[in-house]
Design a protein around this nucleic acid. Structure first.
Lengths: 338, 338
DNA sequence: CTGAAAGCGCTTACAG
DNA sequence: CTGAAAGCGCTTACAG
């Protein structure tokens, strides 16, 4: 790279100290009462030399980097991609940059990412926590690194978080199916102890109990790291064994795998089998009968998480904020609604 | 944040200079012939104090940040999300972090992102260039900032790039449709002068000419910033006006919009209308007849771009690398193949 | 074999 | 109104 122009270059050119240049370029000319003439000269020189401040030097000096570390499960997953985009937009507005990483729901990767980002002095984190990552997030908290959890939280940890009201989301979905006359309502979930999953399952179970069909309760728990084909297979087998007449999927990826499974065994939807998916997806629209699904307020989730993080970074408040947002049940053909 | 431990803390604790600590912790103990005893003490102390090096300080000193700036059109678009993930994985392997930004195909946003990233001293860029961004990328080149373009390149600029062989991709798709007996083959593209788009269109036109159906040539050019509904509407109208018997979509987003349009007007696919989409997508699988599509080698694109960037950053070679990858036509029901 | 010291490019409390 | 100087936390050429 050709040599960069620094504050000093401008200072020498104009014939003042770097301090004065710094003041002017940071808009402190009034406060520091720099002469109008000199200020103008400095600004002109900066423009002329095409000066670009070195943020690294500034960060080192100021002790803050204006950077947010975002850790999601997988940036290639549209759910997280959309979330990332919202976080990005919100961050830019406040003059922050975001660096990101994908954990694959894996604690080891997650820890490596957190360490890297800490070394890079990010000012705060937005994290989709993985199973068993409690201690590493705890260490962030004890070092007082601002941090907000999103999509899921860890009940044992005192952090801010933004999550869906997962219990109600599924509870209402089940109720909807019951109202449509279904009884053999089963759920496909991940084998995962994280709160978002357990709350979704609890919502299902509670609703089944309230509607007095607890005998029909069945949750198929699938390991996260299976391939889609394997997942498809398991769901297909279950449909046969259990003679389900309705299915609720606990995540978007499971919904998709489920759609493939249902397509394979050629069940008529919703006549033979009603379906409810999680999160919107174009594939839902083109399935033989458009999927009814639980819609998360993504925009709001992303925005709130940045808002809370910025607040934590600014005020040194110890008070953590907990936001739980409501989902919306988009009713369509796959559950017999039009 | 509680105060961080620095090199100095370790140095004082062990009773050596920061230089020695730095050498040991950077694995230069052999080279600098630090005593085994001392080296051990230093390592122990580092572990004990839970030392984490400040990358910002290191970056300032070394003049490199081990950071890659990635600019895509929209990280929420699965095509770019997947690309980002591949870039991320590849970067991590080489101990780089990536910061990202979405340009929305907008030159102003793109410029703001590039400036921000330059200020943050990224070591290099991977950019999906937007229309009309020539000058800003040119200024990167003239400052000798390593930079590889991806998905599209700018013919007037001397940069490395990794792109698809867009011409052949569409040429073959058209040929396939011709072989299936179609003649009124039309194309839906973006109104955009970027090379990837013009090459796709050229591939279509050339194939039509070669097969002597140039009289049927029609490319519907749609503005990028229209809503999906508007796009749908335009495609629907075109289908009626033009009595197309086959359609090729120039991008994934256009394919999706097209599928909605086709669904609305209830044309039978492929009997009344054959379709070929761009990039894979789950929605393609669930469309009434699974979509034939042009598949890009995403994995390879992402990996190559990082490889080339790393090479440019390491060797100060002025030689630019140009990679053009071949697509694959995945033939399925929507074009009458099974 | 080891350390003192300069310096990366900024900001800011302080002195005048 | 303006500048000299310290310092953020590292790395590294140099001296011994």
């Amino acid at each position: 790279m050709s040599k960069k122009v620094s504050l000093k270059d401008i200072a020498t050119k104009v014939g003042v100290s770097t301090a004065t240049v710094s003041y002017v370029l940071n808009g402190l000319e009034k406060e520091k009462r720099v002469g109008v003439e000199i200020a103008k000269k400095i600004k002109d020189a900066a423009r002329e030399l095409n000066y670009m401040p070195n943020q690294i030097a500034r960060s080192l000096r100021k002790g803050s980097t204006n950077t947010i570390g975002l850790i999601v499960a997988d940036i290639a997953n549209p759910f997280f991609g959309q979330l990332a985009r919202i976080v990005e937009d919100e961050a830019i507005k406040h003059n922050y940059t975001v660096i990101f990483g994908s954990s694959d729901e894996d604690c080891v990767k997650s820890e490596a990412l957190i360490d890297t980002f800490v070394n890079r002095q990010v000012d705060g984190f937005i994290i989709v926590p993985s199973e068993g990552c409690k201690s590493q997030i705890n260490s962030l908290i004890s070092r007082e690194v601002p941090c907000v959890l999103i999509d899921r939280y860890m009940p044992q940890l005192n952090t801010s978080y933004v999550v869906l009201d997962n219990f109600s989301a599924v509870y209402h979905a089940v109720t909807h199916l019951v109202e449509k006359g279904h009884r053999r309502i089963h759920m496909v979930a991940y084998e995962n102890s994280l709160i978002h999953m357990s709350e979704r399952i609890r919502g299902y179970q509670e609703a089944m109990i309230v509607h007095q069909i607890e005998k029909e309760i069945h949750v198929e728990k699938i390991a996260y790291n299976l391939t889609r084909n394997e997942t498809e297979q398991i769901i297909g087998d279950m449909l046969m064994d259990r003679k389900s007449d309705a299915l609720i999927f606990a995540t978007n990826a499971l919904s998709i795998a489920g759609l493939y499974a249902v397509k394979n065994i050629q069940k008529k939807v919703p006549e033979e089998l009603a379906l409810i998916g999680f999160d919107g997806n174009e594939a839902f629209d083109f399935f033989e009968s458009p999927l009814t699904y639980i819609k998360q307020p993504l925009e709001q989730m992303g925005r709130e998480s940045v808002r809370i993080l910025l607040a934590e970074m600014k005020e040194k408040t110890k008070k953590k904020q907990h936001v739980q947002l409501e989902s919306q049940l988009i009713m369509r053909a796959s559950s017999g609604s039009f």
